[in-house]
Design a protein around this nucleic acid. Structure first.
Length: 271
DNA sequence: CTAAGGACCTGTCGGC
DNA sequence: TGCCGACAGGTCCTTA
């Protein structure tokens, strides 16, 4: 489900409801997520006040007075603020109890998401080695071009790798490459600096626009307020195989690489 | 070191 | 209506 825009939409949705509040603990109904939920989570967070809610890559960071809760939504996760007493559904695995009768509830049917606690989130093994934020200053064409030097893997896989840049998943990788006019299977190391200038701009634009639209709802993404994202109306290639390209009218193609589908316009993205 | 493939898990959809 | 396979927005780990 969530790429960076969906995670950011979720972060913005929960932030005003929990910032400054005291946590009363955690109720873990199912600890078997991508990584086991810490069995002492309740003890670690109970009594602490939420200082701020931040995002790094696709992780939501709930900063407490001592340490941070780190949440990843995987493929199918969602976070909502619920009222205590609202019945938990089959896939509502964890509730973070918030003073005032509320709870931050993690639902995740596929259980690819995870919850961690860290005294020092920057040093957490899953976060420590991540690449730059795509909307931050450290992400520019000089960086990307240098990182691609000598690399033979497809540029789409290159930009989807979180060590290269974070937050670019299957939808936005396809859309950014379309906007930049770059073929998704082109070797990353065989793309000019000039074209990386265009790609960086495209990645930033696509993500920023998607955040403004509240993310993309393909099947089941809803924000923490239960609303879908509207960026789906702005997709040029993702999920549009067989349809005419809006730019040149050629037929949008879908190809598989490993398990993943990729979408592109064979005329607009020749190289 | 790089690149490619498998693994994790459940729900939904299309075809028969 | 029921069953079965294919597929889904992520990313870590293993293998070569």
């Amino acid at each position: 489900m969530p790429e960076l825009p969906e995670v950011e939409t979720t972060r913005r949705g929960i932030e005003p409801h929990i910032t400054g509040r005291r946590l009363e603990g955690a109720v873990v109904r199912e600890a078997r997520l991508r990584w086991p939920v810490p069995d002492n989570l309740h003890r670690l967070i109970a009594g602490q006040r939420v200082v701020s809610v931040e995002r790094r890559a696709k992780y939501i960071l709930v900063h407490l007075e001592q340490g941070s809760i780190i949440i990843h939504l995987g493929m199918s996760g969602s976070l909502r603020v619920v009222t205590v007493g609202d019945g938990a559904g089959k896939h509502d695995h964890v509730d973070i109890m918030v003073a005032g009768g509320k709870a931050l509830r993690l639902r995740d049917p596929r259980r690819f998401g995870s919850i961690h606690f860290s005294a020092d989130w920057r040093a957490h093994p899953l976060i420590r080695d991540l690449g730059p934020e795509p909307l931050g200053d450290a992400f520019d064409a000089a960086y990307l071009h240098a990182a691609a030097r000598g690399r033979r893997l497809a540029v789409k896989e290159f930009i989807m790798n979180a060590h290269t840049v974070v937050g670019v998943g299957n939808i936005y990788a396809a859309e950014a490459l379309f906007r930049a006019g770059i073929h998704p299977f082109r070797a990353a190391g065989r793309i000019s600096r000039t074209r990386y200038v265009r790609l960086v701009a495209a990645i930033r634009a696509v993500l920023a626009e998607a955040i403004e639209q509240g993310g993309t709802t393909l099947r089941d993404f809803v924000s923490s307020e239960g609303k879908p994202g509207y960026f789906g109306q702005s997709l040029f290639v993702y999920g549009r195989q067989g349809e005419p390209c809006e730019s040149c009218s050629a037929t949008v193609r879908m190809a598989r690489r490993g398990q993943r589908a990729t979408y592109y316009c064979p005329r607009c993205q020749k190289n």
